[in-house]
Amino acid sequence: VTLFVALYDYEAITEDDLSFHKGEKFQILNSSEGDWWEARSLTTGETGYIPSNYVAPVD
């Protein structure tokens, strides 16, 4: 499982989006939707859509 880490803070715009803070880690559930990925936060356990350009793979 490839994990991703937030590079910036993000505040949800719609109820389907997931708010997060810089440094938060995610498991990507679906990355086939283009620039918005469905993800689960490993910090909160919540799922929602995140902007793919706000995250990077964890080394």
Rank of each mutant, 00 (worst) to 15 (best):
P51N: 09
L18V: 05
L7N: 03
R40E: 05
S32T: 11
Y54R: 07
E46I: 10
G23P: 00
H21Q: 12
P57K: 08
S52F: 08
K22T: 08
Y54I: 05
Y49D: 02
V55Q: 01
Y54V: 04
D59E: 11
E46K: 15
V1H: 13
T43K: 14
A39C: 05
P57C: 06
D35E: 13
L29A: 05
V1R: 08
A6W: 01
H21F: 14
S52Y: 08
R40M: 12
L29C: 08
Y49M: 14
D17A: 15
A12R: 07
S52N: 06
V58E: 10
D16G: 15
L7Y: 03
E24H: 07
F4L: 04
F20H: 01
G48M: 03
A56H: 08
F26N: 00
L42A: 05
A56K: 10
T43Q: 09
Y54P: 00
A56S: 09
L42E: 07
L3N: 05
F4P: 00
Y49S: 06
W37L: 08
Y49G: 04
I28C: 04
S41Y: 03
A39E: 00
E46M: 14
L42P: 02
L29F: 07
E11Y: 11
S19C: 05
D9N: 08
I28A: 03
I28D: 00
L42G: 02
R40Y: 11
W37S: 02
L7R: 04
W37I: 06
V55R: 00
A39P: 00
E15M: 11
L7P: 01
S41H: 07
I50M: 02
G34I: 11
W36D: 03
W36P: 06
E33S: 14
H21W: 08
Y49C: 08
V58H: 08
T2D: 10
E11D: 11
E11S: 10
A56I: 13
L3A: 06
S31Q: 13
N53K: 14
T47S: 09
L3S: 05
S31F: 15
G34L: 12
H21S: 12
P51Q: 06
Q27H: 11
T47W: 09
H21D: 06
I28V: 10
E46S: 10
D9M: 04
W37C: 04
D59L: 11
A12T: 04
V55D: 00
D59S: 13
W37Q: 03
T43W: 13
W36Y: 11
F4C: 07
Q27G: 03
Y8T: 06
T43M: 10
L18M: 13
G34K: 14
D9T: 06
V5Q: 07
Q27A: 09
Y54M: 10
S31V: 10
Q27N: 07
V1E: 14
I13H: 12
E46C: 12
E33L: 14
F4S: 03
D35L: 15
Q27Y: 15
E46F: 11
G48H: 03
T44Q: 03
L18A: 01
D17L: 13
Y10C: 04
S19P: 05
W36N: 06
L42W: 07
A6K: 00
N30W: 08
D59I: 12
L29N: 05
N30Y: 07
I50D: 00
E15T: 11
D59F: 14
F26Y: 01
S52R: 14
S41K: 15
L7G: 02
E24T: 08
Y8R: 08
A39I: 03
N53W: 14
A12F: 02
G45F: 08
F26W: 01
D9W: 04
K25P: 05
I28M: 04
V58W: 14
D59K: 10
T47P: 02
G48A: 03
S41P: 01
Y10L: 04
G34C: 11
G23A: 03
L29K: 05
Y54L: 11
T43H: 13
S31H: 11
S31D: 12
I28P: 03
S32W: 10
I13N: 10
I50S: 01
E46Q: 15
Y10G: 02
T47C: 10
V55I: 10
E24R: 01
S32D: 11
V5E: 07
I50K: 00
D17S: 15
